[in-house]
C-alpha cells in the first residue's frame, strides 16, 4: 500500500442531544494515495458525517484524523482552513455554485484565498475547466448549464488547487443517468491520473467504479475487501 493520505484512528462524531446521537461510532480507516473509495450506506447511516469530518468541515468528538500524516484534530481553525483550501477538494450533491458568477468565476473562488497572482489564478481556473470538458463554457452562468455541466464546474473548483484528496458527496444525486455516467467517467479518469477520491453514494452502480467500498450502517464503518482488486 502507498503512503496513506487519510488515516482514521477511532474517529467518532456524536451530535449533542438531547438525546446524543452517535452519528459515527469509533472508526479506523486508511486510504492510500491514489485510492478510489466509495462510502455507501442507507440514508442517515452516517455517510455525510464521515464526509464532513474528512473534509474538515466538522470536528470529531473522539479519535484522530491524519491527513497526509498530519493530525488535523489538534489544528486550530486557521490551519484547518488552509488544509481545506490546499489539500482537499469537495464536490457537493447540490453543486453549491454561486448563481451570479460565471463558470470561470466560480472556479476562481477556490483560488481566492491562496497566495497566487490573479493571472496565475485565471490560467489555473481555465485549465481546470478545460480538464473537466468545459473549456468552451468559461463565461456561462450556472443557470445556463445543465446539471452535469454544473457538477463539472464544481469538480473543476474542487480540483483547481490541486488537492491530494477529492471528496464527492452524492455527486450524481442530481444528475440524469447520461450525465451521471459521463461524470463517473471523468472521476475514473482523474483517479487513473493518481488522484485520491472518496465518493459518498447510495448508488451501487456508482460505487462499482471505486476500487474499495466502505459501508456505514448506523454509524458503524466496515469495509468489504473486493477480490481481484489491484
Amino acid at each position: 500500500m502507498t503512503a496513506p493520505v487519510i488515516e482514521l484512528r477511532g474517529l467518532a462524531r456524536t451530535y449533542p442531544g438531547p438525546p446524543p446521537v452517535p452519528a459515527l461510532r469509533p472508526a479506523d480507516l486508511v486510504i492510500g494515495a491514489g485510492d478510489y473509495v466509495a462510502v455507501t450506506g442507507p440514508s442517515g447511516s452516517g455517510k455525510s458525517t464521515l464526509l464532513h469530518l474528512l473534509g474538515l468541515l466538522d470536528s470529531p468528538t473522539a479519535g484522530s484524523y491524519l491527513l497526509d500524516g498530519l493530525d488535523t484534530s489538534k489544528l486550530p481553525d486557521r490551519d484547518r482552513s488552509a488544509l481545506r483550501g490546499r489539500r482537499i477538494g469537495i464536490v457537493f450533491q447540490a453543486f453549491h455554485l454561486l448563481a451570479y458568477r460565471t463558470a470561470l468565476e466560480n472556479v476562481l473562488l477556490a483560488e481566492l484565498y491562496n497566495h497566487t497572482p490573479r493571472s496565475t489564478r485565471l490560467q489555473a481556473a481555465a485549465g481546470a475547466l478545460g480538464a473537466v470538458g468545459l473549456g468552451h463554457r468559461l463565461d456561462a452562468l450556472p443557470t445556463t448549464l445543465s446539471g452535469g455541466g454544473c457538477q463539472r464546474v464544481a469538480i473543476a473548483r474542487a480540483l483547481v488547487n490541486q488537492p491530494s484528496l477529492l471528496l464527492c458527496d452524492e455527486p450524481t444525486g442530481n444528475l440524469d443517468s447520461r450525465n451521471a455516467a459521463s461524470l463517473m467517467e471523468l472521476l475514473d479518469q482523474l483517479n487513473s491520473g493518481g488522484l485520491t477520491i472518496v465518493i459518498i453514494t447510495h448508488d451501487a452502480a456508482v460505487a462499482a467504479h471505486a476500487g474499495r467500498t466502505v459501508t456505514i450502517s448506523d454509524g458503524i464503518l466496515s469495509e468489504r475487501i473486493r477480490a481481484g482488486h489491484g
Binding site: 490551519d79 484547518r80 488552509a82 491562496n114
Partner: peptide, 21 residues
C-alpha cells in the same frame, strides 16, 4: 506548529473586487 501550509489570505484588492461583485 500547524499544518505548515501558507495560511489562507484575502488581499484588500480581492476583498474590494468581491464586495463590488
Amino acid at each position: 506548529p500547524g499544518a505548515g501550509l501558507p495560511l489562507p489570505r484575502l488581499t484588500v484588492r480581492d476583498t474590494a473586487a468581491e464586495a463590488i461583485a
